[in-house]
C-alpha cells in the first residue's frame, strides 16, 4: 500500500503544472503555431492558408530585422553589462565587514518593487532632453554643453533602455549571485588565502568556477528576459520604438502586428521566430557553461 502510494505520488505531485500548462499554454502555443501558417488581415476577415509565407516574409521585412537587432543589442547589454555589474555588486554585498550590509542588499533590490509602467514614466523624466535628471543633474554640473536627446536620437535610444535595465535589474541579479556565494563554504576561501593566492586569483580560480551554476541561471534568465522585454520600452519610447524604430523590441513588433495591424498570422510567426532565437541562444549557453546539474 505504502509502496504503491510512493510510486504514484510523484505523478500526482507534478501533474498540476502539466495539466494547467496543457490548458493555458499548450493550447495557445499550438493554436498560435497553427495560426502562423495563415494570413489574416483584420476584423471579420477569413484566414487564408499561406504555408511558410509568413516565415519567409520575416527575412525581407526590414522592420522585423531591425527589431531582432535591437533586441539582441539589449540582450548583449544585459549579459555583458548588467550581469557583470550584478556579479560585482553581489561580491561586494557578500563581504562580511561591509557596513550596513543588510540595508544595501535590500536597497539595491528595491527598483524591482515598482511597476514597469511607473519605471518607464519616471525614466521619461530621467532622460528628458530639457527637463531630465541626467542632463540637468549629471551632465550639466560636469560642464557638458548641448544636452543629448536621449529618447530621440536613434543612437542613444537603446543605451537609454539599457541604463533603465541596469537600474532595474542589477539588484535582483546581485541577489542571485549572493545566494550562490553563500552556498560556497568560507573555508575554501580561507584555505586559498593561506596559500597566498591574491584576490583576483581567488576570484578567477575558486569563486567563479563555484558560481558557474548561478552564472548559468542568471545569464539564461537575462537572455529570456531580454527577448521578452515589453512594458518598459513600450512606454518609454512608444509602441514603434521611437526614431528609426531604434527602440523597437521583437515583442513590440509582435504586438503591433497582432493587435494594431491585425495580422494575427504574421504576429504568430514573429512569436515563433522569437522562440527559436531564445531556444538557440539557451542551447549554446548550456553547451558553453555546462547543463543544469543536480549536485
Amino acid at each position: 500500500m505504502k509502496q504503491w502510494q510512493r510510486r504514484v505520488a510523484p505523478y500526482v505531485f507534478v501533474s498540476p503544472f502539466f495539466i494547467g500548462y496543457a490548458v493555458f499554454f499548450a493550447y495557445p502555443v499550438v493554436h498560435g503555431f497553427y495560426m502562423s501558417f495563415f494570413k489574416q488581415t483584420g476584423i471579420g476577415s477569413e484566414p487564408v492558408f499561406v504555408g511558410l509565407g509568413n516565415y519567409l516574409k520575416l527575412f525581407s521585412d526590414e522592420t522585423f530585422l531591425r527589431s531582432v537587432f535591437n533586441t539582441s543589442y539589449y540582450a548583449a547589454g544585459s549579459v555583458f553589462l548588467i550581469v557583470p555589474v550584478a556579479l560585482g555588486l553581489g561580491l561586494a554585498l557578500n563581504i562580511r565587514r561591509l557596513p550596513v550590509r543588510e540595508f544595501f542588499r535590500l536597497f539595491f533590490f528595491s527598483p524591482l518593487i515598482t511597476s514597469g509602467v511607473v519605471v518607464a514614466i519616471i525614466f521619461r523624466l530621467v532622460f528628458d532632453e530639457r527637463y531630465g535628471l541626467i542632463n540637468n543633474f549629471i551632465l550639466a554640473p560636469l560642464g557638458f554643453d548641448g544636452y543629448p536627446a536621449w529618447l530621440i536620437q536613434p543612437a542613444l535610444i537603446m543605451p537609454s533602455i539599457i541604463i533603465l535595465g541596469l537600474w532595474r535589474y542589477t539588484g535582483v541579479n546581485a541577489i542571485y549571485f549572493l545566494a550562490g556565494l553563500q552556498s560556497i563554504s568560507p573555508e575554501i576561501w580561507e584555505a586559498a588565502s593561506i596559500d597566498g593566492a591574491n584576490r583576483w586569483q581567488v576570484f578567477r580560480h575558486i569563486t567563479l568556477p563555484l558560481l558557474r551554476p548561478t552564472l548559468l541561471f542568471v545569464i539564461i534568465i537575462a537572455i529570456i528576459g531580454s527577448y521578452n522585454f515589453f512594458g518598459e520600452p513600450y512606454l518609454l519610447v512608444g509602441p514603434e520604438g521611437g526614431t528609426r524604430n531604434a527602440g523597437l523590441f521583437m515583442t513590440m513588433y509582435l504586438y503591433l502586428n497582432g493587435f494594431r495591424f491585425m495580422k494575427f498570422g504574421y504576429a504568430a510567426a514573429i512569436g515563433y521566430a522569437l522562440t527559436v532565437i531564445i531556444l538557440v541562444l539557451s542551447v549554446i549557453q548550456l553547451r558553453l557553461l555546462g547543463a543544469f546539474r543536480e549536485d
Binding site: 505531485f13 493554436h31 529570456i224 493587435f259 494575427f264
Partner: peptide
C-alpha cells in the same frame, strides 16, 4: 524527492516552456 519514469523528460520539457515568450500566446489565450 522522487525517482520516476519520465522524470527527466518532463523536467526538460518544463524548462523548455520557459523559452516560450508570453507574447506568442496572447491572441490564442
Amino acid at each position: 524527492k522522487y525517482e520516476f519514469r519520465g522524470k527527466n523528460a518532463l523536467f526538460t520539457f518544463l524548462l523548455a516552456t520557459l523559452m516560450f515568450p508570453m507574447q506568442v500566446t496572447l491572441v490564442p489565450l
